[in-house]
Amino acid sequence: MLILFQILFILFAGFAVFNVISRKRSGLLGQRAVFFWIFFWILGVIVVIWPNSSSILAAYLGIGRGTDLVIYISLALLFFLVFKLNVKLDSLNRDLTKIVRKDALDNNE
């Protein structure tokens, strides 16, 4: 029997995968990113439906509980994504500056 949380999570994962695919269609996501995110959500669904699966892996890695493992991985992933976003934003900022500068220099004479 699925409990309510599991149903909600599966619905959400389905929605997320749908989102990934429609982004791929409009060319906003590359092949690698698509595979990563689909894999990620499938993994999530597996762990939510069979909580023991994460415990087995956790025990293998020497971490006490399966939920801890999930939290560690999620946190690491979040930090990594935030970092990447920050770096990306900074490089966008630099590109923007270059354009603004070129415009300023070109429009003087």
Partner: peptide
């Protein structure tokens, strides 16, 4: 010289150097 968007003092100095 006019920056169409605010890019900060450092950016302005670099624009000045290039000019």
């Amino acid at each position: 010289l006019k920056h169409v968007l605010n890019r900060g003092q450092g950016a302005a100095l670099q624009t000045g150097h290039e000019y």
